[in-house]
Amino acid sequence: MKSLFFKFSLLTLLGLLSYTPALEVQEFQGQATYFAKSSMELGRWGARMSEAQKKQVQARLKNRLEKTYVLNFNKEESVFNEEEKLDAMSGATDSWGKNFSPGEQYKNVKENKLVQSQEFYGKRFLVKDELLSLDWQMGKESKQIGQYLCFKAMALIPKTDLKWYDFSWGDLRRAAQKETDSTSTESTMPEIEMVQVEAWYTPQIPVGHGPGEFWGLPGLILEVSAGNTTMLCSKIVMNPKEKLKIEAPEKGKVITKSDYKETITAKMQEMRDNRGRRRS
């Protein structure tokens, strides 16, 4: 009888040890909200404008200069997306700016994989490529962001790699120069414009994620400044009660980053040529 009782007690104990409450096996997840602010780059056009005109343009472009993003992440994957909002003046979404803004972005830091949904004039693309290569220089400086202790890291990145989904009319000039150089016997290498990136990450959240293209530090990136844009984390929720959806987008024509850049540049060239023919 004692032997039988002992076996029953042992089985009961093993059963209790093997049982883990649902909360303890919950997948590690987090959600970070970022506020992004950009300054205007008016170039030579801006030099001819008064301060009042600059303020008017800045107010009109507020939706493009100030944005809110959400980053959902687990240990290996993340999804980064913009919170859509109405134009403050017209009450409509910024459809023109949407053509050259980053779409829903999935990153897998373990597999070095990027999957990003991009819409360009009604056509959907699915950009599949490697993550941006970042050679971080770790610093010793630290500062507090909210309740998190953060450390500084710096990197230099080619602007074309950082803004592959964007377009400027200078892209057409560079594309034309590239064609000229390819037919010339004395071609010269174009100058590569570099962007300095300053990031602040916290080891208190030990994941290699960050907003936008940025990743690869030993802690979640809470603040990053690159060119004329700064993104700052304003809220973090760790292991929310409701499970987050962290999956790669699936719809669209599959394409690489470089091919996508060439596609939108060629389309803008076509649009400019058509406009020129209508005027003549």
Score class of each variant (00 low, 15 high):
E27W: 00
N239Y: 07
Q177R: 15
K163L: 12
A36W: 00
A59H: 07
M271A: 15
Q177N: 15
K163I: 01
L126A: 02
L134W: 03
L14Q: 04
Y201D: 11
Y34N: 05
R48A: 14
S142A: 10
V109G: 04
T188P: 00
K55C: 01
L114K: 02
K267G: 00
L220R: 03
F125E: 04
L65M: 13
W200E: 10
I236D: 06
S182Y: 06
T20P: 00
L65D: 07
T229P: 04
A266M: 09
L149K: 12
F28P: 00
S280Q: 13
G219K: 07
D87K: 01
Y34Q: 04
L17R: 03
W169A: 11
K62P: 00
K75T: 10
S50I: 06
A155E: 03
P211T: 05
N72H: 14
E247M: 11
W164N: 05
D166F: 06
G91S: 04
T263V: 07
Y165Q: 03
R275I: 14
E130P: 00
T183R: 13
T160N: 12
S142E: 13
L217T: 10
V127L: 06
L61N: 13
E83T: 06
M138H: 12
Q29N: 06
N72A: 10
E270H: 09
W200L: 08
G252W: 06
D181E: 15
M271Y: 09
G276W: 02
T185Q: 14
T180R: 14
K143F: 07
L126M: 05
L13R: 03
E186G: 09
L134E: 03
W200R: 08
G43A: 11
Q147S: 11
D166N: 14
A52P: 00
K2N: 11
L132K: 01
A59G: 00
E84W: 01
F5R: 09
S50N: 05
E179M: 13
E77N: 15
S95Q: 08
F73A: 06
F100H: 08
Y260W: 04
M138K: 14
I255E: 01
T265W: 05
V254D: 01
A155W: 06
L132N: 03
A248H: 08
E41L: 10
A47W: 09
D259N: 12
C150T: 15
A153W: 04
E242Q: 14
S142V: 02
L61I: 03
A226E: 04
F5C: 04
P158A: 03
W164K: 05
L232P: 02
V207H: 10
S95V: 13
S117D: 06
Y260M: 00
G43W: 08
T20Q: 13
L126W: 01
K110N: 12
K253V: 03
A52T: 11
E130N: 14
L4K: 11
T256C: 08
S90A: 01
I236V: 15
